[in-house]
Design a protein around this nucleic acid. Structure first.
Lengths: 330, 330
DNA sequence: TTGTAGGCGTTATCAT
DNA sequence: ATGATAACGCCTACAA
């Protein structure tokens, strides 16, 4: 069993409180004693017990990261970014795969309330209820949102301007010619993010005198593959396609190629997310890149800041997506 | 602030110890009182404090997952599998990205020693020292290894027969013809896993009267792309290539195609790991698949088992890789 | 500057 | 079957 603070006190012939002060760099100890105690602590490799400390201080230096799922590399990116930031600050991270199950989220927020974790980062796609929001309010800034819009309450949020993704994509497609036929493939029709992208895309198309063809429910590779058949009856060359799921995009590209068409000559396509899929695809995809890593880092930072300072900013930061040009556009 | 056990005791007009017994389903409470207390607990939504419980019981229901990095989807798979298993058992998971830094590993093992976490799962690639091993011994079965061979000490381990990966790959390449020219591309030459794969591959080649061409240090896409130039001087058709890095394999395939050769007609290739890369690749890669998810699940299970039962098995389980046939072989 | 003592929320030991 | 009470390891008034 490891050394405790009490042991250290005995060894140094001082009271526990003195050791505590020395260890935590708090005033009220003579430099002499502090040095002595610190040396002893070092010598015996003393490590404070997080549990006891947490119990006494009502903070644990652990934060929870709530994710909608653990399926795509996106989650990994966020995990990695948050972990790195937290580790630097001496915090630890609990992963919660909500699988979009709302009760999991609730459990973690309860832990927050009970001082068993210091804060929560919620990634977009994680479901929430009104009840939780109240908790968020009570606890002020100990919840931060990443790529998740919550209208009912003001929480520190790091948001992506998804509308802009749509506009950037459309504008890129019209860059070379106004005569390109615009198509957009989205997933869940009712999803806020997808709606924003769609809106941005449609708006720019209008500006160019076009009304884009809109295909919804395109999530999987198979969906993407089959979506081409819906376009094929009245094909106009050139056609420009923006899809919000890269894996669906891969499917689309396959069927475009199978049909004997060329990318980017006949079809120009733009994907969402600069990931392994877009980089491996042939041709390499031109994509709209979201600064997720930066967002996740900042989220972790702002969370820790607010835990430390106990201030409530309710700050909302908007991040701009950007175009990454590759070979699927000309 | 949430309700405590003490509050509950007051509400029920009983002693704290009685509430504790009731809550934890321990004997020594009349059914009558137990019902009453449980009802109260439910009504007031009582949740025991993990920290206090951990402090008193000397266990935390938290385990640490030590990873070499958070770069590839492999880590995500393991995280996901372990998380799922633990969640079912009421455990939580702390992610530790060691970045192959040995001191990080040590910190977590120290936490183990200090009862701040209940167990550790170490994934292959994470560095360890002799000192830690001693800790492992002291603590018996609270450490389990996944795809990591530790010869100095007997710990519960879940290992992959990487040698077999090599033999399966080679045998598949020789399946259609004995005249195929075997090539193997590996990464770090001194890595145990890579050596095993190489050994298995070479052995089978020998059996077929061949001595394979061996290229080492092939890790990145670029490496893979360039590796082809090393073969190109004396090309024999057909050639069969086994690479242990899929991303390098993608590079190789690109340069094969660029050279005007066909896969699988001229070159048959086999990769390692059934992942997003192998599935998206064109042609879809025939690969050696490792049952990592199953291993990770079992590791989590065996860890919890040994925590619960406090028994030491030192069990070593070997998992067999298997061939997944796709379109990069004929 | 230093020490004493009570508390954080729970479990466990010993009486009753 | 119950209830006090002392741990668990640390922090923090308050006192000296």
């Amino acid at each position: 069993m490891a050394l405790t603070l009490k042991d250290l006190a005995r060894l140094a012939n001082v009271a526990e409180s003195t050791v505590s002060r020395a260890i935590n760099n708090k005033p009220g100890v003579s430099e002499e004693k502090r040095k002595e105690i610190l040396n002893l602590a070092d010598k015996y490799n003393y490590k404070p017990n997080r549990l006891a400390k947490g119990l006494a201080e009502k903070r644990t230096k652990i934060i929870a990261l709530l994710l909608p799922d653990l399926e795509n590399t996106l989650s990994l990116k966020v995990i990695s970014a948050v972990e790195e930031e937290l580790e630097e600050q001496g915090y630890q991270m609990l992963i919660c795969n909500t699988k979009k199950d709302i009760s999991k989220t609730e459990n973690y927020l309860k832990m927050l309330l009970e001082d068993q974790i210091d804060g929560v980062i919620i990634l977009g796609g994680t479901p929430t209820t009104g009840k939780m929001i109240q908790i968020g309010l009570d606890k002020g800034e100990r919840i931060v949102l990443v790529d998740k819009l919550l209208e009912e309450v003001v929480l520190t949020s790091h948001l992506i301007d998804h509308n802009k993704s749509g506009t950037i994509a459309a504008e890129r497609l019209f860059k070379n010619s106004n005569k390109i036929k615009p198509v957009i493939l989205i997933g869940e029709e009712n999803d806020y993010i997808e709606q924003e992208r769609l809106r941005g895309f449609v708006d720019v198309c209008k500006k160019h005198g076009h009304k884009p063809e809109i295909l919804t429910g395109i999530n999987t590779r198979q969906d993407g593959y089959e979506s081409f058949f819906q376009l094929v009856n009245n094909i106009d060359i050139p056609t420009g396609i923006f899809f919000t799921s890269n894996i669906a995009g891969i499917g689309l590209i396959e069927s475009v190629k199978t049909g004997g068409w060329l990318i980017p000559d006949d079809f120009e396509v733009i994907g969402c997310e600069d990931d392994i899929i877009s980089r491996i695809s042939n041709p390499k995809l031109t994509v709209i890149k979201n600064p997720l890593i930066r967002m996740a880092q900042n989220a972790a930072k702002s969370l820790i800041d607010s835990i430390r300072s106990k201030t409530v900013t309710g700050e909302v930061r908007i991040y701009e997506p950007e175009l990454v040009e590759n070979d699927s556009t000309k």
